[in-house]
Simulated scan of single mutants.
Amino acid sequence: MSIEWDADTPPGTKVELQTRTGDTFSSDTLYYHGDNIRLYEGGAAEYYARKNRRDRGNKIGIWIDGPEWEKSFSAPYENAAGSPITSPSPRQFVRIRATLFSNDPEVHPTLKEVRLNFAEPVARHLLGEVTPTQVDSLGVQRPFSVYIRPDTVSAGGFDQLLLAAPPQMRLTYRGLYGGKGSDFSPAADLASLEIADVEIRSDHSDSLHLTFPAVLSESDIELFRLDFDTSLFTVSAPLRAALRRGDDGWWQRVDAGDAAAQITDNDLTLVAVPRRKEIFRNLAIEPQVFTPNGDDINDAVKFTFDVVLIRQSSAVEIHIHDLGGRRVRSISARRPVVTGAHALEWDGRDHAGNLVAPGVYIVLLKIDANTEGAGLDARDLTRTVAVAY
């Protein structure tokens, strides 16, 4: 399912559309006094009926979303010509919220039309969960498994799977397996369950896009398992999974739930409970002694490290000082999301572009961010590096 709309948006204005989806409603009635003060006490209907007609206010019928509805609206859709619905689907009902913005009270946008495009779902319902959901450290590569159970696969079936993680996380594919629910016991022979002819469209990035032979309604596969490796850089990392048929099909979202009987988490969010709250992890300096003499051998030193716990856009900074405390060079890099793996180089030159004198230099690694009150154990790291000729 996708959404598209037509709107007039003069300069300085915009229109945002968001959705929520669900399957059930319940009805209720709101009763008001004649002065339009709502009746909240129990027995409001009976109290309202006993009032004189002139003392009665409005009586308004409302619909209340069922418990399975999303708790909040989706992120705003960006493409007016057609954006895939990101709310859970298929569902019986969709609620659309349109917000109109203007920087000038004399100028306004106009929403003229909203259209919903429907496509056959790949299954009546898709449930998924990840295991393990909790780790005790950040910046450490670990294996994970996502289980996906399609309920009542459509005739067209599906042949593509997408698993997406927050930016800066790197997902490395390890295997895709399919079988009956009982096949995935702890002692299962995964080699016999491996899906053949899997093509990896993306790997070693923040998403895995896989294609495989179509799984149709008559297939005896009840449960899928996707194995991958990744590192967490923040204390919470929601995963998004979806299935579709063909490159021109719409992605159907996988909802978190009880996909596999042997897994008890029923969630698609990874959580870290680190024992130490350090911003920097896995700092490596290669080589420890470098020779910036232009012979293309160890002409620069490379600093690699992971940043964890900080979600904001911040600059990572390396300040290089001589043993007298004088700063000779500063190197910085800024990203929209600072968490993740970083690599910075120093070519042995000072702020003026001149090669520094041989000797030992102090390297201070820090982040330009306000972390006061965050309970972090170490906000800066200090190391040494040597320059030789």
Rank of each mutant, 00 (worst) to 15 (best):
S219L: 03
A45T: 04
N370F: 08
G249W: 01
L210W: 06
N293C: 10
A188M: 07
G43T: 10
L30V: 12
L344H: 03
V114S: 02
T291P: 00
V301K: 09
D247E: 12
F305M: 06
D23L: 06
F290H: 08
L226F: 02
G175R: 09
A284H: 14
V328L: 11
A272W: 01
R329P: 05
T110R: 07
L163E: 02
I310Y: 02
G22N: 06
V235E: 09
D159R: 07
T384L: 05
T384M: 03
A98K: 10
Y31P: 05
D265Q: 06
N370D: 15
R335T: 09
G359M: 01
H108Y: 09
T86R: 15
V130M: 03
Q92T: 14
H319N: 13
Y177H: 14
A49T: 13
N370R: 09
D151Q: 10
F228W: 08
E345N: 15
P292V: 05
D65H: 12
A119D: 13
R95I: 08
S236W: 09
K71I: 06
R38H: 07
S231Q: 14
G359F: 01
R253D: 07
P11R: 15
Y40V: 02
L283M: 10
Q262I: 12
Q134M: 12
P274G: 05
S182E: 06
T384G: 01
R174N: 13
G57R: 09
V215I: 15
Q312T: 14
K366P: 00
L223Q: 01
T371M: 14
A123Q: 07
D159N: 15
P150E: 08
K71A: 11
A374K: 13
F280G: 02
Y361M: 01
L216K: 10
V146K: 01
K71Y: 04
Q252E: 11
V301P: 01
H33G: 04
R91E: 06
S89C: 07
R91G: 01
I200N: 01
S332Y: 15
I200C: 00
L138V: 06
N79S: 12
R276D: 07
D368Y: 03
I367T: 13
P143R: 11
I37L: 15
K71C: 05
G34R: 08
T269S: 14
V307Y: 07
A81L: 15
I200M: 03
Q18G: 06
P358K: 14
L17F: 08
D35S: 11
Y173F: 15
K51V: 00
R281W: 10
L171Q: 05
L163C: 04
S102T: 11
T382D: 00
R20N: 05
G12H: 09
A196C: 06
T211F: 04
